[in-house]
Design a protein around this nucleic acid. Sequence first.
DNA 1: TTCGGTAACGATACCGGTATCAATACCGGC
DNA 2: GCCGGTATTGATACCGGTATCGTTACCGAA
Lengths: 386, 386
Amino acid sequence: MSAVTNQQETARIRQFPIDNRYFQATIELFNETSVFHLKKDKGMVSSITLHDVAKLAGVSIGTASQALNNRPNVAQDTRTRVLDAARTLGYPVKESDNGTADNPLSVIGLLTKHDYGFPFEVNAFYSYIQAGVESECRRHNLSLMFSNIEVDPANHPIMWPSMITEQRIDGLILAGTFIENTIGLLGQRIDIPIVLVDSYAPNLPFDSIVIGNVEGASTAVDYLIQQGHTHIGLIGWAKQSPPSIGERQIGYLRTLEAHNITARHVEESGLNREEGYRAAKMLLQRAPEVTAIFACNDLTAIGAIHAAREMGLTVPGDLSIIGFDNIDMAKEVTPSLTTVHVYKTWLGIFSVRQLIARAMNPEQPKTTMHLVTDLVIRESVSRPRK
Amino acid sequence: MSAVTNQQETARIRQFPIDNRYFQATIELFNETSVFHLKKDKGMVSSITLHDVAKLAGVSIGTASQALNNRPNVAQDTRTRVLDAARTLGYPVKESDNGTADNPLSVIGLLTKHDYGFPFEVNAFYSYIQAGVESECRRHNLSLMFSNIEVDPANHPIMWPSMITEQRIDGLILAGTFIENTIGLLGQRIDIPIVLVDSYAPNLPFDSIVIGNVEGASTAVDYLIQQGHTHIGLIGWAKQSPPSIGERQIGYLRTLEAHNITARHVEESGLNREEGYRAAKMLLQRAPEVTAIFACNDLTAIGAIHAAREMGLTVPGDLSIIGFDNIDMAKEVTPSLTTVHVYKTWLGIFSVRQLIARAMNPEQPKTTMHLVTDLVIRESVSRPRK
DNA sequence: TTCGGTAACGATACCGGTATCAATACCGGC
DNA sequence: GCCGGTATTGATACCGGTATCGTTACCGAA
């Protein structure tokens, strides 16, 4: 993998050729108050202090402190004067929580645990969760920290990210296949509200938001049965799969049971495309009577499509395939993938709301929120040939 | 779009049923020192103070401070004792920069500017950049803050994210199609190192990392010409496109020129799939002699594939299509997309390194780093029929 | 043994910021 | 005008943390 071709360097005098009034005003104020000493220690921001803000606003530092922290007993006029001064000088201002009820959080962390593939494959599922988290944080004026976490072969974290060890956050969202022990250790290490997204820790007192996996899988398998399939395979699940995938398998089993279908065609596998490809091939060789496959996620479903094609089977003519998650790719593959839509972004949005609710009322009982799934019918499923 | 079905609530006694020695040890230490007063003010972390750490470690607070800040004149033995005490009590510890040269940053921000589609479409391009940034931050023990930014119709930011206004970061990476004015305003607002990724501000003194767009586009168009195409269309670019896309158009024009091809088939459009679909249809209706299309990114290329198919043209038989970016989807569509690979993750990785270098040496001249691109040959391009 | 130098440490001053509380201004009722 | 209450403000104490500098322990050389 080649990388950089050349590193063009263009030396330039450091200058800001921009002239706008804001900048001018700032300069003048600096001169006026003459408190600006450009202290470049450790790359920190220029050392504007509360004292300077108070001086510029013409109040005492006590009042300035009160005004900047949204406390009562400060006249509106004074408050705006202080805020203006602070903004002018570049002093950190916590923007007032506009209208919405006050929330006690200011920085929250999003911690995911999933392996980047090699070389770097981003799991779109988490990208969507993160997009939801980010947008909801922005709505609530929260700062968001983000880190992934690496684990050793035993699935234990190798090291905590710095946002944990340096305690930079006052709320935490965990997304991904953490094992309960890890979550427990985290809960002891930091004493802040935690919510789990698509993650399971039944013995721990943390709120969580999960996907209706059992129902979703049932809907999918039900749909296959309705189409007339009786020999339905399962790929993407394995004994050591995380609980969310286990639930999808349970949905598969229960639905077959409910329809008095005894044939079980399960090929254990991992969750990526290559595993789906492998498992589908194995399954079809072992059980050629299979006419439909329920894949535990879209990536394995896509792998299965390729496997089927390579074995000379048409999809959906000879083999129907249904996925789970509805990632972007699902509608672009050929045939486009019938799958179970998961409201990934909403997982992220609700997790932030849950976190705020928990922070505002630490005594409320543990809650678990289930998000519904929706069947998305596209082209990869049809009635079985004869 | 339906959302939540039900909100199962399971009240439980808040308890930690986990028993491990670490937890036990912590409890004992709390008792021993008897400094643990669970102050739940504003949801902040438990108020362990430097004093407590010093007491537990059996040193003065001065020494404890020195030890925790990696300063000289502390015996190794004492330092580890203090660090252990701090970790035990849960006092924030800045993990020592293991081996690598000291860097002056501790929290950096990643700010993107791109519109989420509706409902929420995540742009995978930025997900990859972010993955690179995150992993490199982790390698350097940096905390990462993340925010997107909304803009008004004139492309000016509506409001600064809280990580800016509250000055929580001491380094900033900007990724996306910011306009120069916005970047300039940011540079005035905060006095921290900034690097730009896939973004252009020639008149501002900020380091940047860009894609070899011109060369990449040249390679792509060159390849089409080599295959025998002479009527080559361009979609995905428009007059108001960001500079990076403008460069791809320039590469297209220059390469045609270099081969003395006079035919220009440009259909202006945006950069998403629907725009690609629309532009390809327009172009093919207007200029049926076109046998190949260079799309400025993969999404438009995929749109073009659909348009061609809908018009009864086979790809690549009747129409060759080449894309740019090499997103995940490119290898899954049918036919799989020949495209220009961009080292998206490396953009992120290098941006962090650039930021650290800048922070360690604020006087170094402005640098611009170009990343090479690679042609990825798949199925969507062939020699023209006849 | 004495001397000088240095590593290690603690006492203390200092700094930035918050909490408290007394002082003051304002205002409406009588 | 007097009175009591309330809103607003500044002085000051306090808190957590860092910087400074004097003290001590130790060690090798004279």
